[in-house]
Write a protein that binds this DNA or RNA. Structure first.
Lengths: 237, 237
DNA sequence: TGATGTGAAGTTCTTCACAGCG
DNA sequence: CGCTGTGAAGAACTTCACATCA
């Protein structure tokens, strides 16, 4: 998704001297947008693309695109643009997409099922290898091409499928305890859709997506756009 | 959801002199987090809360919380903290949640159905008033407490339900054309889950959520965390 | 006393503007 | 000539540190 990046930074705790250069967070999220455009261009046989065109399709400025791409090295051709196939490869490499990612989805409710069948994962290199739930009625049933596993066997499932990413699609009430078990099972990358703040150790990556939060942010902008004269009586201004 | 802020800012086109004070985008997204915590505290009967506690539950610094809240005015009590009920009300007001939001969901596939039944919308003041799809097999069926409408009647449905927000949960291929019709129908706030860049007029608010993008961002961080020695052979450093 | 509120400093990200090069 | 690559300027956001006040 493309929430606006907007994940508040977690408090930094370990100033570990990472050897590799790190990309600005904002750049990383835009790189995923460029990559999508590049892959579409690749499919239609385009050879090269300008920073202007990439900017257009990502909704940012062209200088921003060039700056982002410059972090990866100088792969453009002056007077021409970027070679689509080459740039696509470089970005995929920078994002770590050459690694094999196996995703386990915990929670086979409406959202979990939607995610399990979401074509966008497969097509972008993420292999959904397991779907788990606590509901005995669901365990053992088939959803898409997966059989639902018992969340009680989480550790075994993670281990046997060698899942290295987990998506949490479950109620707020149980999210933290399941999250703890996922971490204990050795998974260090977690995407949570539970509408609650989760705490994880510093060496675990956690991203959060909350649909209701997105609507609230929309509401804020809508209210401003519409003149803010509809429902309140603020003094001043 | 809470993607990390990650919506790249759209290019500004109209330097309209809005009379009302506007909040920093980063502040708006954190306010939704504070609001969630406040409502939980309210439910358990807490009277007041400190910036430190709010910071803890949102994963940010306490100075950051105080600065954010100061944009809304001075509603804290020095030496004590913030009155939970009062602050909750102020934030809701600032976010425009006192307005009545009626949401139409376009696309009754897996994701659309999950969203239609997502309890988080109702509980946070967003009323799901319609669910539409192009598939004749789905039109007329009941999902949750809604009957699926034909997307061919989009304009009529928007008008009769007075929907003022739309969630797009449909394939990339048809997203832009449906989006155009939604805009033409007068809706100015759109949340899209389609994995494609949409273009809308400047007076329309569009937010995007892409699950695969979130996983890609996780992949980037995971790769760095794990030492980046697994799959590539970059020169230098 | 103790936590808020806030100028000022610091940091990060974006935009500008143009040199550089195919 | 045209578009990339990039230092420098600018804007936005975060953090600090402490005056302020219930």
């Amino acid at each position: 998704m493309w929430s606006s990046d907007v994940n508040p930074a977690q408090p930094v705790e370990e100033p570990v001297a990472e050897p590799a250069r790190q990309l600005p967070a904002a750049t990383v999220s835009r790189l995923t947008l460029y990559l999508r455009t590049l892959n579409a261009l690749l499919a239609e046989g385009a050879e090269s693309v300008s920073s202007e065109a990439l900017a257009e399709s990502a909704g940012v400025g062209s200088a921003n695109v060039r700056k982002d791409l410059s972090y990866l090295g100088s792969y453009g051709i002056r007077g021409v643009g970027y070679e689509v196939a080459n740039l696509s490869r470089k970005i995929a490499q920078a994002l770590g997409l050459t690694h094999e990612w196996r995703v386990a989805i915990v929670g086979a409710g409406n959202l979990g099922r939607a995610l399990a069948r979401y074509a966008g994962f497969e097509s972008r290199g993420f292999d959904v290898v397991a779907l788990l739930d606590a509901d005995e009625m669901l365990v053992g049933t088939e959803i898409g091409w997966l059989r639902v596993s018992d969340v009680g066997n989480l550790e075994k499932v993670v281990s046997s499928t060698r899942a290295n990413m987990v998506v949490l699609a479950l109620p707020a009430a149980v999210a933290q305890s399941v999250c703890d078990r996922v971490v204990a099972a050795g998974v260090r990358s977690i995407l949570s859709f539970a509408p609650v703040a989760l705490s994880v150790p510093g060496n675990v990556n956690l991203r959060k997506v909350d649909m209701a939060t997105e609507l609230q942010i929309l509401a804020y902008h809508a209210q401003r756009l519409q003149g803010a004269h509809l429902d309140e009586d603020l003094p001043g201004v």
